[in-house]
Design a protein around this nucleic acid. Structure first.
Length: 462
RNA sequence: GGAGAGGUGGCUGAGUGGCUUAAAGCGACGGUUUGCUAAACCGUUGUACGGGCUAAUACCUGUACCGGGGGUUCGAAUCCCCCCCUCUCCGCCA
């Protein structure tokens, strides 16, 4: 959520920002509702103020009335009636104004929540993912993405789907039987490898990097979804559990990322400035409806409704330099992990059209997936980078919605925090490059060295 | 799931319709005193949203907030209704 005062001061900045992101929101309506609301509030408050003042007189009079001898009571009662006339009159106008204020507040909030965070000045303007700009690449010591898979490994690549089927690491049929399309079952070493990746990433964040591990709810109230910025814009992406239909007071929503729980944790708190920055990590199951993605990435483990993810978030002081520094660090943690896994990746600077409403800046990390991409003249896929991570820098947009602040040591005033988040490892999507890059000509798969401690020392599958 | 007790400021805790529109204590901050520390004494005290005046996030002023939402009333922490949460006991259970 943006700062309304900033909107009043410079509406053009937000008009342009929304246009750059390709998000339709009527800034003029927000300003109109805002102005009308404040006018109504002003009138309402002065009426209530008058009512309260008379109320005090009535209170004092009531006290005198109680102690007064009977002879004086009729006069006092008459005075009481006279005093009560004006508040009664105010009440009807107050009710009218209250209705107006409630209505305008709702209208203003509805639009306010939809005004996107302006992209930072150094984020390239663009329409969609095609306009993202590559920042840099890293190649594995033993796999050069500029050469074909066969040139790298000496045999033709099989897709993770084929590998998984041959080695019985996962299947889709029974997953679909139980839960519908985009559902799957991990089996045996497939499940073990999945856990190994997550554990490896989780241990790095906690033991090595000092992030605090939290296990957080993945079934949360609407307020947390709004606060973290996933609602209202992404409402159709979340599964909802309609508890109100069975008499409960609240509906609940399955979270699409651990970020929701990690950030919602401190909702409505004023944090101790001395304890910032807060660094949290979690491993959680993530649920996504993938509405609007029908027909897209329908094969394999790439786009699925349920997966597990190690996520990292940082909540820091409202300082642009510090925010930017953490963004780079958090990206660096992921690079370290991918380099340990010896898998080629690249960094993409996302353009304005690909940022989403809440980000000032976003860097995607894509890992090389040999089975993706166009098919060459021999009918073999050329391979392509596939998105595995996304590092967001949000300034105070998310923390303002969540109402997470700290007290500035100098002024003593509450200041809205900055927040950042980044994937550490999302699996089974990350199993795609692992299986495909580490496959051998004999059909087996070598287990990446860093994952072997989490596989009981096992070196190969199959 | 059943029964009961609760939810008041940073913390403890009083307050069962106005004469207290949240007492008192603790803590924190500022000051006085002091060779220094401690103590004592005096003072201050939250958040949000408006309005006024502005260079100002300074100052003045208003409204709201006693778990959340609604209601009764001239007036609600207090009375009524719904919901949420916590605790105790019972039941069930990974």
């Amino acid at each position: 959520m943006i700062d309304l005062k900033q909107l009043r001061d410079d509406p053009d900045r937000f008009r342009k920002a929304a246009a750059d992101k390709g998000i339709a929101v009527d800034i003029d309506d927000v300003l109109r509702f805002d102005a009308a609301l404040r006018e109504a509030q002003t009138e309402l408050q002065s009426l209530v103020s008058e009512k309260n003042r008379i109320g005090k007189e009535i209170g004092a009079l009531a006290g005198r009335l109680k102690k007064a001898p009977d002879s004086e009571k009729p006069a006092l009662q008459q005075e009481m009636q006279r005093l009560q006339a004006r508040p009664t009159e105010i009440k009807s106008r107050e009710a009218e104004l209250n209705a107006v204020v409630t209505d305008l507040e709702a209208k203003r909030l509805d639009l306010w929540l939809r005004i996107p965070q302006p992209a930072d000045h150094d984020v390239p303007v663009g329409r969609d993912a095609d306009d993202n700009i590559e920042i840099r690449r890293w190649n594995s010591p033993w796999f050069d993405t500029s050469r074909t898979f066969a040139d790298n490994k000496g045999f033709a690549a099989r897709s993770h789907v084929e590998i998984g089927k041959a080695l019985n690491l996962f299947e889709f049929e029974r997953g679909v039987k139980m839960a519908g399309s985009r559902s799957y079952v991990l089996i045996g070493d497939g499940m073990r490898l999945h856990n190994a990746v997550l554990r490896c990433a989780f241990d790095m964040m906690t033991s090595e990097l000092g992030f605090t591990a939290l296990s957080v709810p993945v079934l949360v109230r609407e307020q947390v979804m709004i606060g973290t910025g996933f609602f209202p814009a992404g409402r159709e992406q979340a599964y909802e559990v309609r508890e109100t239909d069975r008499g409960g007071g609240y509906d609940l929503y399955l979270t699409g990322t651990g970020e929701v729980g990690l950030m919602g944790y401190h909702q409505d708190e004023i944090l101790d400035a001395a304890r910032l920055p807060l660094r949290y990590t979690t491993v959680s199951t993530c649920f996504r409806r993938e509405a609007g993605a029908a027909g897209k990435d329908t094969t394999g483990l790439y786009r699925i409704h349920q997966f597990d993810k190690v996520e990292q978030v940082v909540i820091c002081k409202a300082d642009e330099a510090e925010s930017r520094q953490w963004h780079q660090r958090m990206i660096g943690f992921v690079e370290t992990l991918l380099q340990r896994l010896e898998m080629p990746y690249r960094l993409l600077q996302c353009c304005t059209g690909d940022l989403g409403p809440k980000n000032a800046d976003m860097v995607d990390i894509e890992t090389w997936m040999p089975s993706r991409g166009e098919v060459d003249e021999r009918g073999l896929p050329r391979g392509a980078y596939g998105e595995t991570h996304s590092a967001s820098r949000l300034y105070d947009y998310q923390c303002r919605r969540l109402n997470i602040r700290y007290r500035d040591p100098d002024s003593g005033k509450p200041v809205v925090c900055h927040s950042l988040n980044n994937t550490v490892a999302a699996s089974p999507r990350l199993l795609i490059p692992i299986l495909e890059l580490y496959q051998n000509g004999d059909g087996s798969v070598t287990i990446p060295r860093v994952l072997r401690p989490y596989m009981n020392g096992q070196e190969r599958i199959g």
